[in-house]
Amino acid sequence: MFWLLAQQTLNGLVMGLVYALLALGLTISFGIGRVINFAHGELYMLGAFFTYLAAGRMGYLGGIAAALVLMAGAGLLLDRLVLRPLRGGRASLWAPFLATLAVSLIVQNAALAVFGPDPYLLSSPYAYQPLMLAGLMLTKQDLLIALVAGLTTFLLTAFIKRGKYGLAMRAVARDRQTAALMGINIDRVYILTFVLSAMLAGLAGALVAPKATVDPFIGRMALLKGLSVVILGGLGNIPGAIFGGLVLGVAEALGAGFVSAAYKDAVGYALMILVLLFRPEGLLGQRMRRA
């Protein structure tokens, strides 16, 4: 009983770090870029496919690196081609939201045309190598996920807290007009935000792919997970995204271990509904205040 609890908690923490990566990307595009990015799942899917394509020549880790470069390009294109034309001016607040929904459908169907509906296997040299850790089992891939996702989360948080452009991002999130008066090139902050967001989603996809399969529709579930975490943690809240990711990962793993693997997702959504009912500002969110 205890071992199952400990084992499932460990599994849940690993998945939770991936959820945190997904949610961090969503939360910065919402908090700073003011967009609920419905194409975030497709960025995750692209990250997995790019890694798959590049891994053939460069190996799994090289494939991830190549995919991250491509994801930076994807984030840049998303901002320049889709979001920037809708910013300011007369476009409604709903326009960017609907535009990302359109991007999601276009990218999904383009991927379907290119790759077909059948699942691909992205092999990682670490996937089936078990490690024993104080009586608990995890694969080398899990360890890699935990290290890379944990380090990325740490570096991103440190950058936003201490970096010059991190400070600029926080200023733009709060008040973009005054941020402009500080001499911040707002356009550049938006590019940075969506490039980072796309890279985070792509990294999540690349890390998880060897534990599952890759097909053009894996982004749907990724978006749902990411949004659940963002709701759990509090919209636009960075520590909330990390904490929420871990909570969702562990809750799902415990649900799978103690109830049934079939109910894994249901446990996550039940948790989300409870949070919406009793703490709609999110686990780490602040109560709504009038500015």
Binding site: R170, A171, D175, Q177, T178, L181, A291
Partner: peptide, 11 residues
Amino acid sequence: VPEGRRVFPDL
């Protein structure tokens, strides 16, 4: 220096 001071309150 804009009207209403516009300092960033959470910084």
